[in-house]
Design a protein around this nucleic acid. Structure first.
Lengths: 212, 212
DNA sequence: TTTTTTATGGGGGTTTTCCCCAATATTTAT
DNA sequence: ATAAATATTGGGGAAAACCCCCATAAAAAA
């Protein structure tokens, strides 16, 4: 009997997964959470064989959750189940300690397969995720760590303010720095994300689900 | 026995919903689709009592699907099941013909409730969606007809170029008109959509699924 | 047919954004 | 510990965006 923990912020999705897992596999769902913080606490305590985690969750996101579980409770195998196809996510998750990566548009049988495989100590990646990892392995020229493609802390902070429609002047006031400095950060952000104006920047944010 | 159709692009979510609905309610799932186009074809043919639809789907999005089903097959009640909380979505969907709106972080029981209620010809809205509609009803100052809130043809055209990141100068060249004219149009667009700069404009477009 | 709206542009200004360059910090690597 | 690389902070100047005002012709609506 495989013990499974579920972390996903959408209740309906979670309940659906529960009945899916119950009906097909010989596994026992030992707990659930709708946010990362509760999930972390539960997983460390319950030490399930497999934890299925989503990326977007309140309080603590999936990436952070995977990192923490991987260090605090390495015996629990982590299966990322998400709708995010972005390369960045796959790589980041694997680096954080995930043993599996599955898209939500996979078949239900694949989820069962993945859970069984992870319980055996092996790793399981969807066709797509495996491809991403392979391509990354064959040309590891880039440091694909975060979805923000190498933005610094300050740049990320300003990035979020910009894509929310806040002007340079107001950002400068908020951060107690010169407007000129904010402008320069903006320039670097455009540069790093390979866009050439604010419209494209917000478009980029939208495509990467970074809009508020 | 209630006949239900499922349209959601995430296979695992869909399979989860199937086992959820099967286990709790006396309903029969007569079909499924991962994209809007197949869903429309199936629904018109099968005429289920209730169709559960997601908003983000390939080929044809949920909004368009709801519109078409509502005209081509009004006997099928439409239940929007989504993770989008934005007011715009709720209102647009209701105008398009949805009889229910549920967030994916609702409880599974609520989904069952909603399906039953819709099958009886009544409507069912989650707490949140009901609130949005009520606030809209209490101050109906706005003409919520289209996501473009009264933009003229030319303004819509320029709007799309702007949110794609094209500058005023280039737009002018593309349309063989003066840059000054484009600027004036941009001003009117900002005015009508009640935003104050390009960033907010693109954000608005993203929220209304108008990005390319 | 008259009136309203739309599309077109200009004048003239302020503000914001974007693109150079440069001086300190701070971190990273050797 | 020292050198190298990067992060953060700025200025100057040019371009783009934004905001008023205005006017004329064409199209749509009353």
């Amino acid at each position: 009997m495989i013990t499974v923990y579920l972390a996903d912020d959408h209740n309906i999705v979670r309940q659906g997964l529960v009945s899916l897992l119950k009906s097909y596999a010989n596994c026992q769902i030992v707990g659930e959470a709708a946010d990362g913080l509760k999930a972390l606490k539960d997983i460390v305590e319950l030490k399930p064989d497999v934890a299925i985690v989503d990326i977007t969750m309140p309080k603590m996101n999936g990436m952070e959750l995977v990192k923490q579980v991987h260090t605090k409770c390495p015996e629990t195998k982590l299966l990322v189940l998400t709708m995010h196809e972005e390369e960045e996510y796959v790589i980041h998750m694997v680096k954080a300690g995930a043993s599996g990566y599955l898209l939500k548009d996979s078949a239900g049988e694949e989820l069962i397969d993945a859970v069984k495989t992870l319980a055996q100590g092996k790793s399981y990646f969807s066709q797509y995720a495996a491809q991403v990892l392979a391509s990354q392995y064959s040309n590891p020229q880039q440091a694909w760590d975060d979805p923000y493609k190498g933005l610094t802390k300050r740049e990320r902070q300003i990035f979020h303010l910009v894509i929310d429609g806040i002007t340079t002047k107001k950002i400068a006031e908020m951060l107690y720095i010169s407007a000129k400095t904010v402008e320069n950060h903006r320039g670097k952000i455009l540069d790093k994300l390979k866009v050439s104006n604010t419209a494209e920047l917000v478009k980029y944010a939208a495509k990467n689900n970074l809009l508020i």
